[in-house]
Design a binder for these strands. Structure first.
Length: 507
RNA sequence: GCGGGUGUAGCUCAAUGGUAGAGCACUAGUUUUCCAAACUAGCUACGAGGGUUCGAUUCCCUUCACCCGCUCCA
């Protein structure tokens, strides 16, 4: 991973944001090659979603249209979506252990024990983090404390009587012994941690002008659902796709560009009849997994589908699956790349209620009115770039250029390097002519500097799949050496056929 | 947020309480007919702030960033 980060900076894929001021936690900039790669992934997604959408189960192309909604929307949007409440989790700190916990994840219980025929209480309520091992943890803790106070028998307790820290009164909170603490009352009052970026519209800053940078692009789609229906002649089932920046004050930005506070999403909301939703959910999970593998070229062995457990699902979601990739930092585990959520009609219901707007769809064929259900494939473009870089990174000490990026040719920032083998004897002239021709079809780079080996190596690090070299023979027979990045093998191709040759390899 | 680690040139790494070095990369030139060749010249650094000191890149404090492990993660 360190090698990749180093290469990414050296060749201009990714730089730390505002680096000359010491950087900023959770923000990264894309350099010349990085933005080219990102745009290529983005364009592939847009083409495969909007311009040439997949073929549906009925053998016909799906209907999906594009959208670019504003990053800042009326703040009521985020009240309706649940983000104002949901993105402002109550957190509590422990003064004793310096730990930080989500307040609603701490469960507390008043455990008692018997000693010499008397029922006794501890000096405080025991607490632990919610989860499968909560009861075992509490029991272990209770035993330890009983032992410390001279022995006794713990009276069996019922987990159903346990309460979340947030449900306790101030007096009761003062009695709680933190999950990892030994003394009571060391937990702070629950505090709000707003994960949304706040800003203000207009020049006067007050509560009325407060607005939010979107934490996801999806809500902009729901807000425009009715506009699209009224203007685009689409019929359910159909999708609306959008690509754009989103912002979240992540608690812990980590792992290069995996979790950042500003990132880019590629989201599509697919509206369908409620009774067909499960079918479409399965369709999209499969389609998306295949897309990363076939269109982006990620190694099949490093991709997996992971179905969310029922207790992991959001309150509005009836199913959710992740497309996961085995990143170097997540190994041996996988990390999220895309989430495909079955959102039901939660969002449309919320926005319909909060905006007092009827968002029902009228199905003329069946003369029915209903709120469509929504399947949402939402992927991180920024994470896509990371996955592609991780997947493409190769190291082979036996090569003249040990490090190279095996990026799928169609996504490569530069498609071909064009070199005169020697910078004289008519070679540069012919190479320049070839460059001027090919640059109109592909992103090319002309390079006549230094030795041929260095030029190949530079292109290898940039992930350029082809290098075209003009040598003495080229001038005589009009052929060019095509050198392949992955194998360093060479073949001669007629200069006239190069355009078609490269086009075929990029397909 | 906690604990540990790391911050010196574009990259990888040295050294030092007293003028900061190397390799590679990069730029210019010479040379060069297929894999980071050679030669010459050139550019470039002690993350930031404060303290101790005659003098700090080095010692101390603070801060920022990155990495690892926890915690968190729509």
């Amino acid at each position: 991973m360190a090698n990749l980060v180093s290469l990414a900076k050296r060749r201009g894929f990714v730089f730390p944001a505002s680096e000359i001021y010491g950087g900023l936690n959770g923000f990264w900039d894309f350099g010349p090659l990085g933005i080219a790669l990102k745009n290529n992934i983005r364009d592939t997604w847009w083409r495969d979603m909007v311009e040439c959408p997949p073929i549906g189960p009925d053998g016909k192309p799906l209907s999906i249209v594009g959208l670019d909604s504003s990053i800042i929307q009326n703040p009521k949007t985020w009240v309706a979506s649940g983000h104002v409440a949901g993105f402002a989790d109550l957190m509590t700190d422990c003064r004793e252990t310096k730990g930080r916990y989500r307040a609603d994840h701490i469960i507390c219980i008043d455990v008692q024990y018997q000693k010499a025929g008397q029922t006794k209480s501890f000096a405080g309520w025991l607490s632990t983090l919610d989860g499968d091992e909560a009861e075992a943890n509490l029991l272990k803790k209770a035993k330890k404390m009983v032992q410390k106070s001279g022995g006794g028998d713990i009276i069996p307790f019922d987990m159903a009587t346990a309460k979340a820290y947030t449900e306790l009164s101030a007096d009761e909170r003062a009695k709680v012994i933190g999950p990892d603490a030994e003394n009571a009352g060391t937990l702070t009052e629950p505090r709000k941690f707003n994960l949304m970026f706040e800003t203000y519209t207009g020049v006067f800053q007050n509560e009325d002008s407060k607005a939010y940078l979107r934490p996801e692009t999806a809500q902009g789609i729901f807000l425009n659902y009715k506009n699209v229906l009224d203007s685009s002649r689409v019929k359910v089932p159909f999708g609306i796709a959008q690509i754009g920046k989103a912002f979240r004050n992540e608690v812990t930005p980590r792992n290069f560009i995996f979790r950042t506070r500003e990132f880019e999403q590629m989201e599509m909301e697919f509206f369908c009849p409620p009774e067909e939703s499960r079918t479409w959910y399965d369709f999209w999970v499969q389609t998306r997994l295949k897309w990363w593998e076939e269109r982006i070229g990620l190694a099949k062995a490093k991709l997996q589908r992971r179905e969310h457990a029922s207790d992991e699902l959001s309150h509005y979601s009836t199913a959710c699956a992740d497309v996961e990739y085995k990143y170097p930092f997540s190994e041996p585990k996988f990390g999220e790349l895309e989430g495909i959520a079955h959102r039901g009609n939660f969002d449309l219901t919320q926005h319909s209620t909060h905006s007092k707007t009827n968002l029902d769809y009228f199905d003329q064929e069946n003369n029915k009115k209903y709120l469509p259900h929504v399947i949402e494939p939402a992927s991180g473009l920024t994470r896509g770039v990371l996955a592609v870089l991780c997947d493409a990174y190769e190291y082979d000490a036996s090569r003249a250029s040990p490090e190279w990026l095996r990026i799928k040719p169609s996504l490569a920032p530069i498609k071909a390097g064009i070199f005169p083998l020697v910078n004289k004897d008519g070679m540069p002239e012919m190479a320049e002519k070839l460059y001027m021709d090919l640059r109109q079809s592909f992103t090319c780079q002309y390079d006549a500097k230094q030795s041929i080996g260095k030029r190949y190596a530079r292109m290898d690090e940039a992930g350029t799949p082809f290098c075209l070299t003009i040598d003495g023979d080229s001038l005589k027979d009009n052929t060019v050496t095509v050198r392949h990045r992955d194998t360093a093998q060479q073949e001669r191709v007629s200069a006239d056929k190069l355009k078609a040759y490269i086009a075929e390899k990029l397909a």
